[in-house]
């Protein structure tokens, strides 16, 4: 799928979520689902498989998310998967998040952590990143056990890495 199509889908999702009044919540849920979707090869190949009927792929999405996400989020993901754009789901969601952040004049800050962050930690981290980058950020937390400990934040082209994984990798490289 080309960028225009991805942007078209992202814009459509954005408008639906904004019209529904759940933009922030839907955006966050979509973002977290996209990250999980990226890391799960089986799920990604299943939802991208055109030989599986669209109704069945949508049923899988509804079974997975169900009560764990808002109905709008489930419907939007189901719509993307049902239209045969499952392979572009992550790109569409990223474009939506970028669009939503731009609408609020924010920069997307993708933060990976081994453990969930409390609201207080997220608030202080948002402020710290704003101070470090000079931009207000739309914080997106991804729980990723592979980082082992610490955080890694990506704001635009800037990567701030304070993870144990990176230090371990550096130690391994020295070994």
């Amino acid at each position: 799928m080309n960028d225009a199509s991805i942007d078209g889908y992202a814009k459509a999702l954005f408008e639906v979520a904004r019209a529904d009044g759940t933009l922030d919540e839907v955006e966050d849920e979509l973002f977290r689902f996209a990250r999980a979707y990226e890391s799960n090869d089986s799920l990604r190949s299943t939802l991208s498989d055109q030989s599986i009927p669209a109704g069945k792929r949508q049923a899988i999405v509804e079974d997975l998310l169900g009560a764990n996400a808002t109905p709008t989020t489930v419907q939007l993901i189901s719509m993307v998967v049902g239209s045969g754009r499952g392979s572009d789901l992550s790109s569409i969601v990223d474009a939506l998040v970028q669009r939503a952040s731009s609408a609020k004049d924010l920069e997307v800050a993708e933060v990976r952590s081994a453990v969930p962050l409390s609201d207080d930690q997220q608030s202080r981290l948002r402020a710290a990143l704003a101070n470090a980058t000079g931009k207000q950020v739309n914080l997106k937390i991804i729980v990723d056990p592979s980082v082992i400990g610490g955080l890694v934040a990506t704001v635009g082209d800037v990567v701030i890495d304070g993870t144990v994984r990176t230090r371990v990798e550096q130690l391994k490289a020295r070994l």
Partner: peptide, 20 residues
């Protein structure tokens, strides 16, 4: 503690690693 250290150092402008 690692998370707090990260937040503190980034807030203080002592980012662990920066690049782009």
């Amino acid at each position: 503690q690692l998370i707090e250290d990260f937040i503190t150092r980034v807030g203080a402008g002592q980012s662990p690693v920066q690049g782009g």
